[in-house]
Design a protein around this nucleic acid. Structure first.
Lengths: 249, 249
DNA sequence: CGGCTGCTTGAACTTGTTCAACAGCGGTGG
DNA sequence: CCACCGCTGTTGAACAAGTTCAAGCAGCCG
């Protein structure tokens, strides 16, 4: 399995080799790279091709007139900007690379053809969108109700779980390329307070964060600290619910 | 146009009379009501029929283990819980009535048939989902970056604009049945602070809020106070972008 | 070497919270 | 009809969480 999108969708549907090849074909033709801190798409642009993050971390963000900036979601390898984004008139937010990023631009037609011809793939993409929406809701909860400590702990739990699904974790470790400024823009706090919160979590032995590698010595403890309940990630979804169009074999 | 969903989708596609009838049929069979403060669906339930709010206000919300509660979105008349919600294994959040609510439960099969047979309707529903996602992102921005005053001003602008799209405003007035506790759970603040913020907005002449009716004397001023830029609502979307499947006449 | 970016620390300050009390209003039951 | 209850809104005062401003340090890259 060398296609990261297929790898991620695999949990939603048993994909055939042809399905996987179809994804590969839709991606193959326009691979791009972006330097760290560069925008990939900007607010106000015409809605573009669908973007698939292949390697590196990116973020959707919005900027207020006075310069305040909020990262509204993280795009990790295997993540897609909405798969029917091209229906919109124009982008209402920007997507920027946080690290160097490799991404594929998937044009509209092949994607629509693929969805029309391969219902199980279409279904997997729709499920993926539902999970993306659930993540966005959970961020709303974090920003609205959780304290600084809980927010950071929750965020780390979420990132770890998401990376795990695309096999980008190693035991209890994963990459954590976000700067403290980035973490501030994600959690709606200042970088200064992020710094103090990280120190607190370190002091309690909940995290080790060194050289852009995050280690979680005791996952349950961190989950408790962040009140992290992973059910919103729908990791163990029924492979195929009974449906009129379900495949027979 | 007596179907509120058709009324809302109308801005995304020129719906034929048959389209409108199809929506009507999918809704007609199971109209329910919920008393104020009652749950319509609860977290952990099996993913249900799709719910369409016909009258009254509801909210999606999540509760933390210690009782803190965050309203993650408002469902106003014409709003739908995700149109392919039934793909999920179980609900990761609850939906509760804030006022007495009339809603329709739309079962899976008729909805899927409708989408398969009526591409322009399917497209309109997908666009609607994209706008719902954009609203969720904007709430993330509010909670992460906006001050109390800006949050409340922004929320009122958004609600007014959304109600306007389904013709539920009257000049510069609309209903505002949310209690100060509700507003607190929406904006991630305490009811006490909502109270003080409302007073501030009133004192400045930005809002009049009396007897559950909101009046906005100067809309531009309130938009400025909340840094409200409505483009994320995609109110003026191109009716039909060129597409291989676009109708010819 | 010099300059940039990211991390750390301290101290004063601001925003919003908490706790507590009370007022108004509508509905209910004696 | 009146007393009472529960819910919503209002107010004050003490408090806590997170911000702001400012300075300094370490590491890295050209």
């Amino acid at each position: 399995m060398h296609n990261i999108l297929a790898l991620k969708l695999n949990r939603f549907a048993t994909l055939s080799q042809e399905d996987i090849d179809a994804i590969g074909n839709a991606c193959r033709h326009s691979i791009h790279t972006a330097r760290a801190r560069r925008d990939i798409i900007r607010e106000g642009d015409a809605a573009p091709h669908v973007i698939l993050i292949i390697d590196g971390w990116a973020a959707r963000y919005k900027t207020l007139p006075d310069g305040r900036r909020q990262i509204v979601s993280l795009l990790l390898p295997g993540d897609l900007c909405d798969h029917d984004i091209f229906l919109l008139d124009e982008m209402d937010h920007s997507i920027g690379a946080l690290t160097p990023v490799t991404y594929a631009e998937m044009p509209r037609e092949p994607l629509e053809t693929m969805c029309r011809d391969r219902p199980s793939l279409a279904r997997a993409l729709r499920l993926d969108s539902l999970v993306v929406a659930a993540i966005q809701r959970e961020w709303t909860v974090s920003l609205g109700q959780r304290t600084a400590r809980e927010r950071v702990a929750h965020l780390f739990c979420e990132i770890f779980a998401r990376l795990e699904m695309v096999v980008l974790t190693d035991k209890n470790r994963c990459e954590m390329p976000l700067t403290q400024i980035d973490l501030g823009e994600v959690t709606g706090m200042t970088a200064v307070h992020i710094n103090r919160t990280l120190q607190e979590l370190r002091r309690e032995g909940l995290i080790v964060l060194d050289n852009r590698i995050l280690t979680i010595p005791d996952r349950r403890a961190l989950m408790r600290a962040g009140m992290f309940n992973p059910s919103y990630l729908h990791r163990h979804i029924a492979q195929q619910k009974p449906s009129p169009t379900a495949a027979l074999g």
